[in-house]
Computed example of a mutant assay.
Amino acid sequence: MRTISGLWRWRRNPLRRTTDLVEAWVALVALLLIAVAAPVIGSLVGARAQDSLQRSVRDQRQSRHLVPATVVRMLERARLEPDPDTSTAHEYRTRVLADWTGPDGTRQHGPVMSGLKSPHKGDHFAIWTDAHGRITTRPLDAATAATHAVLAGFGAAALTTGAVEGGRRLILWRMVRRRYARWDQAWDRAGPDWGKAGTGS
C-alpha cells in the first residue's frame, strides 16, 4: 500500500522538505488508523449487527410456526429462485392448493408452494405461518444471522480503511497542488530573464 511508502521521508536528508515530513506524519497516522481503528470499528459494527440479528432470530422463532398442510390439488409446476439458506440450485418447488390450520385454530385455504415433487390430493407437507395461520417465510436461523454479522463487520472495516486511505490521498493531493503553486510563484519572481547570460550583472 502507498501509505507505507510515505514513511521513508522520516530519514535524515539535507534535501528533505517540510512537506516531506508532513507527508510522513500523514502516512504514519493513516497506517495506525488502518491497523487499529478499522478492526475496532469492524468489531463494534459486527457485534451490534450480531445482537440485532440474533434478536430477530428469537423474535421470528416465537412468531412463526411450522404447521402441516394438506394438498387439495396441484396448480402448476415452476422453478423458483433457490433459497440461499436451504435450497440447492436445482430444487423444484410445486404450487398447490392446500388446506391448513393456523396455530390459533383458524382454518386456512389457498395456494402455497410445496417441496413435493409429485403432489397428489391428500399429501401432507409443512409450511411456515404466523400466529394467525397466514403464510410467511421461514425464520432466520442463527448461523445465517452470524454470517451476516461477520460480513457487516468486515464491510465496516473495509469502509473505514477506504475512508482513511481516501483522506490521506486527498491531503497529499492538496499538498502537491500547494507545492506546484509555490513553484509557479517562484518562477514568476525570477522574471523573464531567468537563465540568460549576464542576468543580475
Rank of each mutant, 00 (worst) to 15 (best):
G155I: 09
R169E: 13
G167H: 08
E165F: 02
A152F: 12
L159V: 12
L170N: 09
A157Y: 12
A152D: 12
L172W: 02
G191E: 01
R178N: 04
E165W: 04
H148L: 14
A143Y: 09
L170V: 02
W183G: 05
A146Y: 11
V164Y: 10
L151Q: 15
A156L: 03
D188M: 03
R177Y: 05
T144S: 12
R174T: 02
V164G: 07
T144P: 02
L151A: 15
A181M: 02
A149Y: 06
W187G: 02
T147F: 14
R168N: 01
R174W: 10
T136K: 05
V150R: 15
R138I: 00
T147E: 15
A149L: 07
A149G: 08
Q185C: 02
A149T: 07
D141H: 06
W183E: 06
R168F: 00
Y180I: 13
E165L: 04
T147K: 15
L151W: 14
G166Y: 06
L140A: 02
L172T: 09
R178H: 09
A143T: 14
A149W: 07
R174V: 00
G153T: 02
G167M: 12
L170G: 13
T147A: 13
T137K: 10
A163P: 06
G162K: 03
M175K: 07
A157S: 12
T147R: 15
A181P: 02
T137P: 00
D188R: 03
G162T: 09
P139R: 02
G167T: 11
F154V: 06
A158F: 15
A157L: 07
A190K: 03
A186M: 01
A163N: 08
D184T: 05
A163R: 05
T136A: 06
D184R: 08
R189S: 01
A142T: 14
D141C: 01
A143S: 12
G155V: 07
M175I: 12
G155K: 11
F154S: 05
V176P: 00
L151D: 13
A163V: 11
R168Q: 00
A157M: 09
F154H: 05
L140H: 00
R138C: 00
R168L: 05
G162N: 06
Q185S: 11
A181F: 06
G155T: 12
A152L: 08
L140F: 01
G167A: 14
P192V: 04
